[in-house]
Design a binder for these strands. Structure first.
Lengths: 162, 162
DNA sequence: ACGATATTGACATTATGATGTCAATCAGGT
DNA sequence: ACCTGATTGACATCATAATGTCAATATCGT
């Protein structure tokens, strides 16, 4: 349809990556609003749902700051959302043996049920969304994301001053 | 490292897409902050840069609302940013032969120079970021994004009431 | 045990994005 | 020419994300 962004001193791979990034921005936004609508009946949002997911998939109980790092999100925003979730009874705090202030975040029964309900809504939708894609393509795209993430996070870590 | 989100009634393709989406969220955020830092010396942000890009790559001059739709962004926010850019002399408005209020957005010389400078900073960085990737993988990932976008936008269009 | 550094939650502020409304304007049909 | 509906920019409001600061606490080295 259109040749979005041409540039003389860009390698073919750089061109392909640029195209990928621009597409990625769009899909990110579309996915978020899609997710928002999907779980809105449960009183969730994409952000809340993501945080619940981080709690569920973590191998051990974690304080808020660790969840934030897992998600690559801001500590303060995660804190705010977790506090909201606690107010609504989806999560609660447990004492942390290793830290007096940094309480551990746990799903309540209601939180677990809500999360399960979200997954229940999500699964059939993502299945149908994935239909028609060669699974290797989805996996390739996933691997590219993981590799890009590593590269970015590597660059960030390399910020040092003499 | 970990098997993020398992679920019994999810197809293998759905599982792969889920993995892709979760990775996509992260890479989106990382890319945006990466871009913000990159063009900050020019007084730009990722968002401003994207809008300048939309103006540049559009085949014809467009009013703000069209740019917003091109970007898949909110009309009002794009309007606000474009107004800011106009205040700073990066873009200006030209009369629209077909509409008295919907002025056309044009890059000023300063705007063009700023955009070129951004590209000048970006190209070498994206080239090195793309190094090590098989170009077919990047292209596959790009195609997946485009296809997903189409699916989402197709779903949205199908919202009708009797 | 002590001191230096890092982490954490609370709080405050700002920046950005999302949503709703309104009047002006335009396009299409009659 | 008129009416209807859609588009557009302006404005207002709210929700969310980002950033900075602080005191409490923990960790590490000595």
């Amino acid at each position: 349809m259109n040749e979005p962004t041409k540039s003389p001193n860009r390698t073919p791979a750089g061109e392909a990556l640029t195209d990928l990034i621009l597409g990625l921005f769009r899909v990110n936004n579309l996915t978020l609003t899609w997710g928002d609508r999907l779980v809105a009946p449960l009183g969730l949002t994409s952000a809340r749902w993501q945080i619940l997911g981080a709690i569920v998939t973590a191998e051990r109980l974690q304080p808020v700051a660790w969840l934030a790092r897992d998600l690559g999100a801001n500590r303060q925003n995660v804190q705010r959302i977790v506090n909201d979730l606690a107010t609504e009874g989806l999560v609660r705090f447990e004492p942390n043996p290793h830290h007096r202030r940094a309480h551990l975040v746990v799903l309540t029964d209601k939180g677990q049920q809500t999360y399960d309900a979200a997954i229940g809504l999500y699964d059939p939708r993502v299945n149908s969304l994935a239909e028609g894609f060669p699974i290797e393509d989805l996996e390739t795209a996933g691997r590219v994301m993981k590799a890009l993430r590593k590269k970015f996070e590597g660059e960030e870590g390399a910020e040092e001053q003499s």
